[in-house]
């Protein structure tokens, strides 16, 4: 799913600072800074501790909120508390992808477990930081139905440990396993309906009494061949409902777009129903 696996290049601490300085010039005046290394900001091998402190210190003064990302294994008490003292209110993004051990192991090949994630998230929050959790909608080998079920179950488990849960519908990036599946006719990116339905079910599941985390969904590549998509006719309206919901957290936007429907909606519903048969690779069923 991740297309960055062959885009890494060695960089020294000085290189990073230089790059950071350039980016900072261009981004002054914005509200939120996300420093996404496409890796782990807390990995000493990626970002040396001294450099980390300097970057966070500069950001802390310049932006209202700072978000970095890391795998949970690098979240040690020392590193996190150092970071929070340089940058109070720091938000740590964790790519959990799924709470299901089998999805993590066989589909995502994540390399860590839900409890590794939970330990990391708990630590960050105990020390006063914020947690943002990323989940995938429809990693490979799952049917559309399994994908929705997995996203809902995962979000319900991750939300109590998170300040924000971000649901990312998978898009087909070149050179990835999903790309190979897609080229073989064995993978279809998720329906935007699925994202809307999953968010609605999670928001309702969390309940108004226990609002828990914010839920957000900003699909990339939506409506494109390689991105999450509906029939093409309703993609824009579903997408804007997802955006409005992400901002307001008001389920009304989702309910409205789902009940308005589209001629492709029964088709999507049937794909979900047929997805009960996981032995059939539903995505490969394209009449030729």
């Amino acid at each position: 799913m991740c297309g960055y696996h062959d885009e890494a290049a060695p960089a020294s601490g000085e290189d990073l600072l230089h790059q950071f300085g350039e980016a900072l010039q261009r981004r002054r005046g914005e509200r939120i800074a996300k420093v996404y290394t496409s890796g782990s900001f807390f990995d000493d091998g990626e970002v040396p501790p001294g450099i980390r402190a300097r970057i966070l210190g500069e950001l802390s003064g310049a932006f209202g909120r700072v978000v970095i990302e890391s795998r949970p294994v690098f979240l040690t008490e020392g590193a996190v508390s150092d970071a929070l003292s340089s940058c109070p209110g720091l938000e740590v993004a964790l790519g959990l992808e799924s709470a299901s051990p089998r999805v993590l192991e066989r589909s995502v090949r994540k390399g860590f477990t839900f409890s590794d994630y939970a330990d990391g998230a708990t630590l960050v929050r105990r020390l006063g930081g914020r947690v943002r959790t990323y989940l995938l909608l429809k990693p490979p080998f799952l049917t559309e139905r399994e994908a929705v079920e997995d996203a809902v179950a995962s979000a319900l488990r991750a939300a109590p440990l998170s300040d924000t849960v971000s649901l990312n519908p998978v898009n087909v990036q070149r050179g990835t396993l999903v790309d190979r599946l897609w080229r073989r006719g064995l993978y279809r990116p998720p329906w935007l309906w699925s994202a809307a339905e999953a968010l609605l079910r999670v928001r309702r599941g969390l309940g108004e009494a226990a609002p828990g985390a914010r839920l957000v969904c900003a699909p990339s590549g939506a409506g494109r061949r390689r991105g999450p998509q509906n029939c093409g006719g309703c993609d824009a309206s579903v997408l804007s409902a997802l955006e409005e919901f992400s901002v307001s957290q008001d389920v009304l936007h989702l309910e409205k777009v789902l009940s308005a429907g589209c001629s492709c909606m029964p088709h999507w519903r049937q794909v979900l129903d047929a997805g009960a048969f996981a032995e059939i690779m539903q995505d490969a069923l394209k009449p030729r």
Binding site: R102, L142, E149
Partner: peptide, 9 residues
């Protein structure tokens, strides 16, 4: 009988 989902256990 369909086996259902392995991933969702």
């Amino acid at each position: 009988s369909s086996g259902g989902s392995w991933f969702l256990e």
